[in-house]
Design a protein around this nucleic acid. Structure first.
Lengths: 346, 346
DNA sequence: GCGAAGTCCGTAAGCGCTTACGCACAGCGG
DNA sequence: CCGCTGTGCGTAAGCGCTTACGGACTTCGC
């Protein structure tokens, strides 16, 4: 499959900016009247460039709408391969996960890392050793962790885990704030729509919920805990069944936006109005969900800063590559009050 | 953020395969006792390598678990930038779309293309001109198409469209075969669970359904056409409402697996058994859906060969880059009969 | 037995970028 | 006025690949 690039168009034009062709660093340099080394320094914010020159270069970059080529940048940066390893059970293409991946890949590209998903050999160990690894959804006793440790390869986990570098959102605080919000609105009987309690994160959300209830002096009832298995349909069915079965709760804290969406649909189908009759709080803050709702103001939910989580994962990994001591980070969450929660009716 | 690679480990070792470090073409060449040029020829299946040498090189590749570096390969291949442009309304991260993208990216990477999503300028036109473009979900009167044509940039559309290069699955045949399958099982009153009829593809699926009914001499009733807006929840609600409203149909042809899933859940909740009481056929064949079902044999559905579609998109684009005449391709679909369809109970 | 035509393979340039190195010039103290 | 330090910048090597080119053999016809 050979493809000849149309060279005849501009026989000997050097770097005279061909209309609309993507600009290279060379062209930027010529346009600005400096060398490519200087342009590169500006791009990477490295010292040794006078303010005047820097401004000129930046103007040229803007003028040519130049954007550095990922492939070339990757090739010349430090030859570090970083591996992505995604737990099989998270490979479920949930919107949340896809967004995370998008941010992660973006950051790695911008940073000039060479990265690839690491294929597993038949014995479950990686086929080749990257210089650093980001793991998503690994359990603490995952054999891969021991292996990486043994090989001296730094890694960071997405999700809380003892004795390793990790990033995780503050799931506990999320559950806490969501529930407090409902309590503050006068609700007392509050369902928790959760599931997958083998995951630490989801246990934590539930833990926050329990703590908030305890603060308010409310003893949680056994039947308030619903398992929606983190799907829209799961949320719908379990909530519908609960309310058909005579549940009198006036609020729901769902551990994911998907389940919240299902819950709201179920309530609607039963003739209950959200938020007039029942308030609902979600978790994640996925715009997809909030926009798809027919509550004009959108879903009240707990926002996770996905970009921040992805960013921190990379930062921690870089620390590991530099040999800095192990450090972990909990990224804060934020309650976003919108249209699906209201003061409890009378 | 400077990171020193540990060079002290093997001071003057040349290309002696460092344990587990990722191999380069150089190391493969030394291991096989040939030059890197020859290794490259083997990798790219280019002629001019004797069978003996080829085997030796392949053995070395396997032994070192060598995999060519994307970045380097991209950089040295023909300098063609191909742009990806994804219609805003398809940016909905549906499983189907994500899979498509995964295949597309894989193929482009293997092929050594440089590709990037093309950002739009404020006036809606692309910020820079790639050498070729793949568009997903563009309407025929999309201004971008005119623009690309005017600039002489070849493009291919995913989805049928007059007068341009396009690839699309045979949606009509899909609808036809799915419905024929149900008819052959003795069903006569068959619902169509569709939606989004502004899309040609979904109209076509419906068209296939109508044609099959016509063949069988059945006049479709108005109330057999349901709008599930291509979501699980949409499918659930509309089907539930239909059957609660006295629908006596014994089969459903859903235009997506998601809607089929919703439909099945709704039927279950109403105490109807699938496939004993009602047969259901989906569309797409997403393993995610079929596995999540509690019908042991999985969902009967129409399979779209996503990899083939992505592949063809690239092939057609390459043809465009080579200046070959415009050509389009319909990729065949296939009915996969599994556990959600059965002969109509007398 | 010698030149021509093949076959197979090594060599080196180059893709677009980063960065170590080193040069030119300014400003300083003596 | 000379050398010295320092700042700002150009230069060139090299990242891991692909591929045009040409060289070393082999094989064939005469």
């Amino acid at each position: 499959m050979r493809i000849a690039r149309d060279k005849a168009a501009a026989p000997n034009q050097g770097a005279g900016e061909r209309a609309n062709e993507r600009a290279t660093i060379q062209q930027v340099a010529e346009h600005a009247g400096v060398s490519i080394g200087t342009v590169s320094r500006v791009l990477n914010r490295r010292p040794g460039v006078s303010p005047t020159t820097m401004r000129r270069v930046q103007a040229s970059i803007a003028h040519l709408s130049y954007r550095p080529d990922h492939a070339a940048r990757t090739l010349s940066k430090a030859p570090l391969h970083i591996g992505l390893s995604l737990a099989a059970d998270t490979r479920r293409l949930t919107p949340f996960f896809m967004l995370f991946l998008e941010h992660l890949i973006g950051r790695l590209q911008r940073e000039g890392f060479r990265f690839e998903e690491v294929p597993a050999r038949s014995d479950g160990l990686p086929a080749w050793l990257p210089n650093g690894v980001i793991l998503h959804g690994a359990h603490e006793d995952d054999p891969r962790l021991r292996y990486l440790e043994g090989q001296g390869v730094p890694f960071v986990l997405v999700g809380r885990s003892a004795g390793a570098r990790w990033v995780a959102p503050d799931d506990h605080a999320g559950g806490l704030h969501a529930t407090r919000h409902l309590l503050a609105l006068g609700h007392e009987e509050i369902l928790h729509l959760g599931g997958l309690m083998s995951h630490q994160a989801f246990q934590d959300r539930y833990g926050g919920y329990l703590e908030a209830l305890a603060e308010a002096g409310i003893a949680p009832k056994r039947e308030w805990l619903l398992d929606g298995s983190f799907t829209i349909l799961g949320g719908y069915r379990v909530v519908r069944r609960a309310f058909e079965g005579g549940c009198r709760c006036s609020a729901i804290f769902a551990a994911s936006d998907e389940m919240a969406l299902g819950a709201i649909a179920a309530l609607e189908d039963l003739g209950l109005r959200v938020p007039l009759d029942v308030s609902v709080v979600g978790f994640d803050d996925l715009p997809e969900i909030s926009n798809g709702l027919n509550v004009p103001e959108g879903l009240t939910t707990v926002r996770q800063d996905i970009a921040h989580i992805a960013d921190t994962a990379v930062t921690l990994l870089v620390e590991g590559l530099q040999g800095l001591p192990v450090r972990s980070e909990t990224v804060p969450i934020q309650l976003v009050a919108r249209g699906t929660t209201a003061r409890r009716r009378e």
